[in-house]
């Protein structure tokens, strides 16, 4: 065998090892959590209040809290994110200001989540005096997801061929008519895909809600948007680091982790299905 061929075989196998290692990591994470968490999942675990200093009972308040916060995040980030993307891609002139705005948005999407947490404390908890509650936490997560939503939505709008816009305009459509009837219908699933991915990331975030509303332990469900709440990711953090009987509550931690990743993956799966459907109805 020639030296060059040997080199190629070795090299490609090295790459294959890298790929397999990455896949094994994922497989291990999923296996560990599913195998140790599945035993804990029961109807009671999902629908009961925690009891006896969180050593027993279920995680219902954490599930409800995460759902509520995610809904608020969605209410903030879907209309504003999509609106901003439509403005930037369809209406804004391509000048230095727009480029600066776009660059800032991209940079904001890389700002650490804990910095959003700090910002949420200043803006919502203190300045607007909303206090630490569901609303503050949801708004903080909403701000954090906005840059992702805007960037992903703009990307989706960019993928609609310009000929769709020009064709409509040339037939006497107003700009908004062209966008509404001939651009948005073909961009909407892409926009939603990006938005849902952003929401799923927000649902799994802990740092931004640490100081804006998440509570250690509440034996009741939030009654209004101005109540504190329990959340799945924060609950997992508490159960694995702060609880006084850490080893005893480990199964609960595993169960919580499983519920959390299931919720997040369900959202991701939904987004992926949307994307595949989008690919099928590809426009040329």
């Amino acid at each position: 065998m020639k030296k060059r061929q040997l080199q190629e075989i070795l090299g490609f196998n090295l790459l294959r090892v890298c790929m397999v290692l990455v896949l094994l990591t994922l497989a291990f994470i999923l296996y560990d959590i599913i195998s140790k968490g599945a035993g804990k999942i029961s109807w009671e675990f999902l629908t009961a209040m925690p009891r006896n200093g969180m050593k027993e009972g279920g995680i219902l308040p954490a599930i409800v809290g995460t759902v509520l916060v995610t809904v608020i995040t969605a209410i903030l980030s879907i209309p504003f994110g999509m609106g901003a993307a439509i403005y930037l891609n369809e209406y804004a002139k391509d000048n230095n200001l727009t480029r600066l705005i776009r660059m800032s948005i991209r940079n904001l999407s890389g700002v650490p989540s804990i910095v959003y947490g700090l910002f949420g404390v200043i803006l919502f908890v203190q300045a607007m005096n909303i206090g630490t509650c569901v609303l503050s936490a949801g708004l903080t997560l909403g701000l954090m997801t906005l840059p992702w939503t805007i960037t992903a939505s703009e990307e989706a709008l960019k993928n609609v061929p310009n000929s769709f816009r020009e064709g409509a305009l040339a037939l006497g459509a107003t700009k908004w008519q062209a966008i509404r009837t001939n651009v948005l219908p073909y961009a909407i699933s892409g926009m939603l895909t990006g938005t849902i991915l952003g929401l799923s990331r927000a649902a799994g975030e802990t740092a931004p809600i640490l100081f804006t509303g998440a509570a250690f332990y509440l034996p009741f469900l939030p009654r209004s948007l101005f109540d504190q709440f329990m959340a799945l990711p924060y609950h997992l953090y508490i159960m694995s680091t702060q609880h006084h009987a850490i080893t005893q509550v480990r199964p609960i931690a595993y169960g919580t982790a499983l519920v959390l990743i299931t919720a997040v993956f369900a959202m991701n799966l939904f987004a992926t299905i949307l994307r595949y459907r989008l690919r099928k109805t590809k426009m040329e």
């Binding site: 990455v22 990591t25 994922l26 994470i29 560990d32 959590i33 991915l197 799923s200 990331r201 649902a203 799994g204 975030e205 802990t206 740092a207 990711p233 924060y234 997992l236 953090y237 694995s240 680091t241 480990r250 931690a253 982790a257 959390l260 990743i261 997040v264 993956f265 991701n268």
Partner: peptide, 18 residues
Amino acid sequence: VEILAGIPSVVVGFLGIV
């Protein structure tokens, strides 16, 4: 690989502990 990106950081941290 994208699934890996979707795992919440707190879950990764949890595996760091256990």
